[in-house]
Each structure stands twice: as structure tokens, then as C-alpha cells.
Nucleic acid binder design. Structure first.
Lengths: 341, 341
DNA sequence: TTGAAAGCGCTAACAC
DNA sequence: GTGTTAGCGCTTTCAA
């Protein structure tokens, strides 16, 4: 069986108390004893049992993250990158990362409830916030530590990291405007997601500010996947009378789907039709043509989320920190001058 | 603070032992008492402290998975899908999933060592096996429960799930041969990965069996990313004298990168050049043109990995189960008759 | 400088 | 049926 402090105590002929203090480098232990204990620990191959430590300390040293997976085939490159960011940061800060995957709904909330009730996690990272977010409402009600990736509607009395979706879309729409586009379509993400709200608002207000009539902007909703973007673009492009010269999608995946739809119809993306994404996943860089998009430093955001949460965990009274990052416009070849402009 | 069995015991005027037994539905508790205890637990909002339960049971009820992330920007759609499969299955079986991300190397091994030593996990899922795999060697040496996604060279005395890479590539190469291709290039994944070995072997032996001379097959290595596939394809295509009519890549991501390279050179994929992938990620379905590839049921594989591991955890003497799945050829539009054939 | 004892929250022999 | 007692492996008063 595993080596315990009791084994070390026997070996060096001291009490387990002394061993514990020696290992934790208390300064009321004789230097000689410390050395002796450490040597014994080393030679016996001792490692503390973290379950026991955690029970005693009444903390789990664990961060929970529940990935919202709507469908069984779940392939969002965005998340693997975010997870890597969170994971690396958690490890560096001495925390474990507990991962669950759950479709939004009752069982999702139950997962949060269970995490809290059974004291398996010290705090949560909530990703992809919704306008009215049941997860956040719950955590707030329970006064349980968490950090969100994204904001919500209503009071923002919690810690979050978010990107400025309005500014990101403003940059994109201005870019398209400057290229001479006068008929724009936006492939929106699901309305319940908070970032949709920001990005859409960015599109709408900027388009309006630039003096375009409301009718020159079409908005269709899709489900964040490549297939969703594809279907939405098909509908937009097949109505030839109202066909836009530019399509801005609310994420890269949908933009790539939209490009496929355009190409199937013989349109050259970047020439006959401009398409933009959002996120700057690595796919955007390597799509054909490379995608104009707004960059979010996803890996870094994951790290920041973790840091903010840990700060809160270490100091209960730390004020909720709020970070809003401005996405950078990345111009590639999927956008070009409006035809005939 | 949190409600404990002691609180319940006080409330109902019984000992904590009785409460514990009632809650665990032992049959030596009076039905009336059981009811009373349950009601009290309910009304007090009791949930067991899992740390305490685990310490007592000497099991962590946790499965560890360390994602090998070579670079900081880590965007493999393959992994998010695998994680979803593992996560769902783990939850269903009553296990937590502990996720870490670590680049292959010393710190990766240290992560495994720490997980074992501190008793934080009951077993590991090892993904993307290498021909000589330090992780597996370690786990084997320590006799620590694990299941691998993939095989290794040498004795296969452990549980694993793998796909038959030889068969998958055989199907692809035969498909290309039937289309009249006589000059093939393969974009191989890194040589240290075990699946590279299988897939490459599938390509080589099949090509040979079909009667092609060795010189008609070129093999270049790339790093599994879109960029890697792109670079490799550029090199292949720019040597016009030796230009292949078909390129088979060892995963979808590289195949998509290769398509980009071809398209940049004015080649029509599926007509002037055929390209194939491997994995059938959702990207393959939506690429332009849609990619011919070999299907791996990734989500399901994740689930199976979990199940095999749990079976082993519940029964120490269960023989190591080994599952090899045969990938199905998915023909889409990235392949077509060889030019001039 | 060290050790005895209590306790984190839970389960399980064993006795009554 | 139920309670007493011990103990999982650790930390931390409190006394000596």
C-alpha cells in the first residue's frame, strides 16, 4: 500500500505530528529532525494523499468546467483551445481541472448543483454565457465562486472575462463598408447567447451609423456550426434578388460553411462575395481563401479566467474583476471590393 | 457550513452510524427510521461530502486524461470530440474526469507520476500512443490501471481501443488505385506516433500489392496541423516533374491544408488532384470540396475507452480488453479519376 | 522542540 | 435495529 506519514514516523522514531510539521517546513522543528524526516520520506517514496489533505483543509483544490455540448458530435476548435489555456493555467496555480460535458438544460444545472453540494470543486468557470443564464443565476444565488467567459443581461456583479463584441463587429463592418459593400447579411449565432447580442448590436449600430438603410441589412440565425453557416448562406444566396455582396458570420465555423455555399454556386469568395468570421481560430488562417476575422486570444483568455477564479478563491473578499478585451481585425483574402463598386 | 450526517443524526435523535446506513439503504435499518432519516436529509438539504467518502473508500472515483498538446495554440477538433465522448461516458458511470494538458516530455510524465502518487485518480486514459510510449511504460511498471487509445510496439498486454489504420488506408489506396492513380504521395504524421506506423504500413503494402513500383510512392512527414499539411503539399506540388496525381494525408486537418496548397496553384481538387484525409471529423464533411476520408467514430471511441477503464477499476483481475475498430471509407468529392486515365 | 489528542466527514466491524 | 468504536491520512491546537 501507499506510504503514509505514519510509516515515516516509525522509520525515524518520531510522532506523526512532527513528521507532518517537518514536511510542511514549520519552523518549530529541529533542523536535524527535518533533514531526517525528508530523507526518510524520500527513501520511502512518500507522497501525501491529496484526498486526505483536502478533506482536512476543507477545500478540493479543483476548478470545475462544464462544456455546453448541444449535439453529440461536438467539434468546436474554439473549446479545445480554451481548455488548453485553462488547463495550463490551473496546473501552474496548483489546481486540478474537473471537466464535464453537458447539454444546456436541467442536467447541466444539476451538474453544477452536484459539484457544489458534494464539495467536489472550489469554483466554476462558466463558458459561453447566455443572456439570462441559469448557471450564473444559480452560482450567484448560492454565493459560490465562479468566473464567467462572457457577460449576461442585468447586473454584472461577478468576475468575468469577455471580448468586446461590439467593437469587433464594428471593425469588421467598417472594413466591409470601406470596400464598397452596400448590401450586407449577417449570419447570427443563437439569440440566447450573450455574445450574439453584442456582435449583432455591433453590426446593426455600425451599419446604421454608416448611413445605410435598414433594409440593406439582412440577419439570419444559425447554430454556430459549419453546417449551420452553410445552410444559412444557401438561403441568402439563393434569393438572387436580395443577394448581399458581403456576409459577416458570428463565428469562423459558420463563415467557413458560408464560403462553401458560395463556392458551390460558382462565386469566388473575396471577389464576387466577401465573407467574414469571428474568433480567429486556426481554421480561419488555413481556410480557402484565408478568412478575414476578428481575433480573440482564446488560449490567453482561458488562462485569465483561471487566474481570476483562483484570486477569488484565495481571497474571498476580492472584488470581482472584469476584463474586456478588444478583438483585433485580421484582414485576409475572403474580403475584397464589392462587385461593381 | 455544509450539512453533515451528524446534523441529521441530531435532528432525528439517532447515531451517525444509523444515519449512514439508512442513507446507503442497508437492510438492517428499520423502515420507519430510514424514512425519517431520508426526510431529514431532504429537509436539511444534505449531500455527502465526496472528499470524505473517497478518503474512506480509498478511491478517488476519478479518471485522469492528459491531453498531449505540442504547441500553445492547440486546435484539434479531434480532441474536443473525444473529450465529449469520454466525459459523457464517465458521468454516466459515476466518475469524475480530471483533465490536464501537457506537452510530451518530462512534465507530461511527471503529471502521470503525480496523479498516481497523490492518489488523485484511479486510472488513466492515454491518448495518441507513441511507438515507444513512456506514459504506458510508466503505468505498466507501476501496475496502475489505464486504457490506451492506440497500440504500441512490443507486447500488447494492456487494454486499448484502436482503429485498424492498415485497413483504413488500404481502403483509401484501393479507392485511389481504382480511380486510375499511378503516382501517389502520402503526407505522413510524425513517425513516433503509433498510428502513423499503421497508416503508413497500410499505404505501403497496399500500393505494393497493387503492383506499383516503389518509386511511384512518395512519403513526406508533417505535423498533423493544417499548416503542416499545407507546407508538405507545397513541396510535393512544386516539384512538377515528380508531381503526384493523388495525395493521401494521415489526418483530415493535413488533407485540408493540402487542398489549400493545390487550390492556390490553380488545381481543382477532385479533378486535377485527388486528396484524402483520415478521421472524418466534421470539418471533412464541410470542406471545399468535401473530403474523402476514413471514418473513425471518435465520440464512441471516447465512450468505449471510459467503459473499459471502469470495468478494469471495478474488477482488478478483469483481463485487458482490446478493441480494434475498422474505419469505413467515406467517398466524397475530393477524389476523382486520375487526369488522363 | 516534540507528542498526545482531537477532528475533517464518512464507513464498517462488532457488540448489544 | 441501533450504537459504540475505530479508522481512512492528514493538520493543528494544546501541553509538556
Amino acid at each position: 500500500m501507499a506510504v503514509t506519514i505514519r510509516d515515516i514516523a516509525n522509520q525515524v522514531g518520531k510522532s506523526i505530528t512532527t513528521v507532518s510539521r517537518a514536511l510542511n517546513d514549520y519552523d518549530d522543528v529541529a533542523p536535524a529532525t527535518k533533514e531526517q524526516v525528508r530523507a526518510a520520506a524520500q527513501s520511502l517514496g512518500y507522497s501525501p494523499n491529496s484526498l486526505a489533505q483536502r478533506l482536512q483543509k476543507r477545500t478540493s483544490d479543483t476548478i470545475g468546467l462544464v462544456m455546453p455540448t448541444a449535439r453529440p458530435r461536438f467539434t468546436d476548435p474554439f473549446f479545445s483551445e480554451l481548455l488548453a489555456g485553462v488547463g495550463n493555467s490551473a496546473a501552474r496555480l496548483g489546481y486540478d481541472l474537473l471537466l464535464a460535458t453537458r447539454a444546456p438544460g436541467e442536467s447541466e444545472i444539476a451538474t453544477y448543483e452536484a459539484g457544489i453540494a458534494t464539495q467536489r470543486v472550489d469554483g466554476f468557470i462558466v463558458v459561453r454565457t447566455r443572456r439570462d443564464d441559469a448557471r450564473i443565476n444559480l452560482l450567484r444565488r448560492r454565493n459560490f465562486p465562479f468566473v464567467a467567459f462572457g457577460r449576461v443581461e442585468g447586473p454584472l456583479d461577478f468576475a468575468f472575462v469577455d471580448e468586446d463584441g461590439v467593437a469587433g463587429m464594428r471593425a469588421i463592418v467598417r472594413h466591409l463598408h470601406a470596400l464598397g459593400h452596400r448590401h450586407l447579411a449577417c449570419i447570427a449565432s443563437p439569440a440566447e447567447l450573450m455574445f450574439t447580442h453584442h456582435r449583432l448590436q455591433g453590426v446593426r449600430t455600425t451599419w446604421h451609423e454608416l448611413g445605410h438603410p435598414a433594409e440593406s441589412l439582412q440577419i439570419v440565425e444559425a447554430d454556430l456550426t459549419q453546417r449551420g453557416g452553410y445552410d444559412a448562406a444557401c438561403a441568402l444566396l439563393d434569393d438572387e434578388a436580395a443577394r448581399p455582396t458581403a456576409i459577416c458570420a458570428c463565428n469562423d465555423l459558420m463563415a467557413i460553411g458560408a464560403m462553401t455555399a458560395a463556392q458551390e454556386r460558382g462565386l469566388q469568395v473575396g471577389v464576387d462575395l466577401s465573407v467574414t468570421g469571428f474568433d480567429n481560430t486556426t481554421m480561419a488562417e488555413h481556410s480557402h481563401p484565408p478568412l478575414t476575422t476578428a481575433d480573440q486570444p482564446i488560449h490567453e483568455i482561458g488562462g485569465t479566467l483561471c487566474e481570476l477564479l483562483v484570486r477569488r478563491l484565495r481571497d474571498e473578499h476580492a472584488p470581482p474583476e472584469q476584463v474586456v478585451m478588444t478583438p483585433a481585425l485580421i484582414v485576409r483574402h475572403s474580403t475584397g471590393p464589392a462587385p461593381g463598386a
